[in-house]
Nucleic acid binder design. Structure first.
Lengths: 342, 342
DNA sequence: TTGTACGCGTTATCAC
DNA sequence: GTGATAACGCGTACAA
């Protein structure tokens, strides 16, 4: 049971300094800060006293947004598994009013033991990758325990529970090729977004394999969201018209289908559409959406279990990257795909 | 600046007893507990020291579920307004893994200053109304500051920001009557759910006004959710077939439309459908859903502002009920409603 | 069931 | 910028 005093003694500083470092207060020289953090990380992570370093049974779940239903779905799955493991969950929406960084600060101050980041800021195509990488490394240095879900950040020493995006793109394209399609478009998210890039690579590989050219004019980039999907679909339909389209998410697929309908094309008769995620409403839209399901429950279980192991004082500390896992998406064929018009 | 010591002195007990009461620990005689709580409530609510009773700038948002997109939408709107008011938000999903009561306990222990309950437990048709009323009254007695959104609990002394459900039902039915419909069904949530009952009353009033009998066989009850909507629609279609159907929520409407399509009926040609909520995807479904929008941003602003006033040490305390407000829903006509088949 | 004594981290103050 | 110190408020172990 180590408290501020022990850390202070080991680092050769005063308790006030340790307190200041842990609470990220200004006015601390960098190397002093580093010395304290070094000591903190050398201490066995069982070292938890009765004060602010005590066990609370609370974890933080950070999701980038709530308007795409896949994130609420992840949140519910994570919360449910965390409860089974004996942890209460606090949910934070990191790209709306408050930044991920601010939430992390607030959660640690509120005595959260660990955090799960779904699509963390480092996977945000709009963020400065180098800066956010440095920020996560600082958190690791401070002993903050965390796990990523779909983090797309293999270079960071954080366990990352992902879905195989490449396989998703490949499987979707393969499904459309099997139906007889040859001109298969790809409605992508922002060009810098790694999940979209990986799916595109899978799509490209499947087309290559089938002897079809994955031409650049078959790919349209747009912002995530239904409006983005509609915009990207409009771009594709203005060019040489594809007979099928693969979308980066179900939400984009809904926007894309709407744009197709606006132009008098019906799905799947004139144009097949494949989504990605399998949000709950995908089965209830007209036509019901063919999509690639993320195994959300399994991924949530893996993420929570990995975090729980890192929080368990009886478990030995473990390197992070070796415990990352990649899950396979599942093709769910519904009504939005069919053979191309003859 | 009053702390545990002041409260203890005024109540004639020790600080540990006050601590135990505030943390809801077992092993406290009821009248001792009551004496402490009485003192707590007589103290001006500016009385906040440096310990667990200090100001933290954090509020809790409690929503019943995340699978109906209307709740994530409320959560984002509330969070955004709370951030404007200088508060960070912690989101809790109260009907999944952990109960509302457990979350309240945990949030107070984590130093949350106040809470906003969207569709609180007392509005849950499956809950024991008397028991949950008592629990809220206990919280009020402990000085917990809270505001309801769509709480449907006028008898409790908690400000309640609601949408006018009766007007929603009336407006939807009126819209369908104006289109020429006469047999208008109602897909309701569980029979005990007050929001559904109020909408049904509005539907009933509009039909009466038009000289149409709101027959019981035109109403079908089912669980909330898309599956429930499908089941209720099946029940209605097994009886004397209506030409239009009004649903308790957009999610139920999607399920209902799916069931109609399964039976070879197309919307709106054979059957008009009206939803309620205006979830983001309502505009992107085929056909786009005619619905009654809740003014989510306005309701969120009202709820946050009311809570903020209650947390402001400079504001005088105010009775709760007199600050409840009811908002008007807006009819949004899209593609799922049309004149009845001739 | 309740009070006392102690441990904890935080904050403020002052010295250097 | 950092350390020493003291006061403070909360939580808990333990004793009554």
């Amino acid at each position: 049971m180590a408290g501020l005093a022990d850390i202070a003694k080991a680092a050769g500083v005063s308790v006030s300094t340790v307190s200041r470092v842990l609470n990220r207060r200004a006015g601390i020289k960098e190397d002093t800060r580093q010395r304290v953090l070094d000591v903190l990380n050398q201490l066995p992570h069982t070292a938890r006293g009765l004060g602010a370093l005590r066990r609370t049974g609370v974890v933080g779940l950070l999701v980038p947004e709530l308007s795409n239903p896949v994130f609420p779905a992840f949140a519910e799955a994570l919360e449910s598994r965390a409860a089974q493991a004996g942890y209460a969950s606090l949910l934070c929406n990191t790209r709306a009013a408050m930044s991920e960084k601010d939430y992390v600060q607030m959660l640690t101050a509120r005595g959260v033991e660990g955090m799960i980041f779904v699509s963390p800021e480092i996977a945000n195509p709009d963020s400065d990758e180098r800066r956010s990488r440095r920020e996560y490394e600082e958190l690791l240095g401070e002993g903050v325990r965390m796990v990523f879900v779909n983090g797309c950040a293999p270079s960071l020493d954080v366990p990352d529970i992902t879905v195989d995006e490449h396989l998703a793109g490949y499987t979707a394209a393969r499904h459309l090729l099997d139906l007889g399609h040859r001109r298969i478009g790809f409605v992508s998210g922002p060009a810098r977004a790694l999940p979209s890039r990986l799916k595109q690579a899978g799509w490209s590989a499947a087309l290559d394999e089938a002897g079809v050219e994955p031409a650049a004019e078959l790919v349209a980039h747009a912002a995530f969201g239904a409006e983005g999907g509609a915009a990207a679909m409009a771009e594709l339909l203005d060019g040489p018209r594809p007979t099928a389209v693969l979308c980066s998410s179900d939400v984009m697929a809904l926007g894309a289908m709407r744009e197709a309908k606006r132009r008098g094309l019906s799905t799947p008769e004139d144009l097949s559409v494949v989504g990605f995620d399998d949000i709950g409403l995908a089965a209830y839209c007209q036509p019901a959406l063919t999509t690639l399901a993320q195994p959300i429950a399994d991924m949530a279980a893996a993420a929570v279990d990995e975090l729980a192991r890192r929080l368990d004082p009886d478990e030995p500390p473990r390197r992070a990257t070796s415990f990352s896992r990649m899950f396979r998406p599942t093709l769910i064929v519904r009504e939005s795909t069919a053979a191309p018009p003859s």
